[in-house]
């Protein structure tokens, strides 16, 4: 659906986006992750045709942004980081204007506007001036604007920034819902958000793609060893000794006491060896009951730090 081909953007000496390549399939929700100033917004601005790339090009649905910009723009709904709202218009006037510039058929305009206002729940503020709306509502109007004309591709730049927790959850579930019909690219620097919504994540740092995979795969690929976290009722020393004697355990470390009479332990196992059963039997034989045991994947935060620091070491 979207092909980003060797896109580079230079501002004088500064390289904001450096030979970025990726494709997004139809119906995919792609997360765009990176620290501030990594080039997320710049890449999105290039895909939507707001700015032009110094080198490379973008194709949407087979249309090239340089050769047929209008065809590309028709297929994209863009919600920039700061929603482009006219403060002196009411919500209804604004959406009406957006429908006009997106060349929506007059006959279907009214109906589709109603549908979108229902979807993002702004129907009850339709006659209020946009400048009097709260930040959360402005954000929703921004999203409504992107949805007008039901473009097959949605590009959302930090859609939940500045919202309260309840609104964030609402917007997230809305995006998930939209993902059934639209191809979505979403940028964020909030990691749990991306792992909650997106089927695939691209991590970008200093204008370059440093990792691209599903959130689960990224976590697995980078973790290397299997890690387990467990809580055992028993004295720390004996428990640790027992665990370290088990075959396949590389390391075991106490993580402190969170419940009286118990100890929390982090176990690192050799790659491809499942130590959960031997652990269970060894501890139960010694009558130290396991209160819980779960495997620990690297969180996206850790992955993020890892790939961005690796990148720093290379460059």
């Amino acid at each position: 659906m979207i092909q980003v081909i060797d896109v580079t953007k230079r501002y004088g000496q500064h390289v904001a986006v450096d030979h970025v390549n990726f494709t997004v399939e139809k119906g995919e929700i792609l997360g765009f992750l990176g620290p501030n100033g990594a080039g997320k917004t710049t890449t999105m601005n290039i895909i939507t045709g707001y700015i032009s790339a110094t080198e490379g090009t973008v194709k949407v649905d087979g249309f090239d942004i340089l050769e047929e910009p209008e065809e590309v723009k028709k297929r994209i709904g863009y919600m920039p980081e700061f929603p482009p709202l006219y403060m002196d218009m009411t919500v209804q006037e604004y959406l009406d204007f957006v429908s006009d510039i997106k060349k929506i058929d007059r006959a279907t305009k009214k109906k589709s506007m109603e549908k979108i206002m229902d979807l993002v729940k702004i129907g009850h503020v339709r006659n209020r001036l946009i400048k009097n709306l709260s930040k959360g509502y402005k954000q929703r109007v921004g999203l409504a604007q992107a949805l007008i004309g039901t473009p097959p591709v949605l590009i959302l730049d930090e859609p939940t920034v500045g919202l309260d927790p309840k609104q964030i959850i609402e917007i997230r579930s809305l995006i998930k819902e939209l993902g059934k019909e639209h191809t979505i690219i979403l940028s964020s620097h909030i990691l749990p958000e991306v792992s909650a919504i997106c089927g695939r994540v691209i991590i970008i740092n200093k204008g370059r793609i440093v990792a691209s995979d599903t959130p689960e795969n990224l976590s697995k690929r980078l973790s290397g060893t299997g890690r387990l976290s467990l809580r055992v009722a028993g004295p720390e020393k004996q428990v640790l000794k027992l665990i370290r004697e088990i075959e396949g355990v590389k390391n075991a470390e106490a993580q402190g006491v969170k419940e009286p009479g118990t100890v929390d332990i982090l176990v690192e196992a050799e790659k491809d060896i499942d130590v959960r059963r031997p652990l269970f039997y060894a501890l139960s034989r010694a009558e130290y009951p396991i209160l819980y045991m779960r495997s620990v994947d690297l969180t996206l935060e850790e992955i993020f730090l890892q790939v961005t620091t690796e990148e720093r070491e290379v460059s």
Partner: peptide, 14 residues
């Protein structure tokens, strides 16, 4: 200044 040019320039208007 209001960044509304982003709306105009990413719409299918010349």
């Amino acid at each position: 200044r209001q960044k509304t040019d982003q709306l105009l320039l990413t719409s299918p208007l010349s």
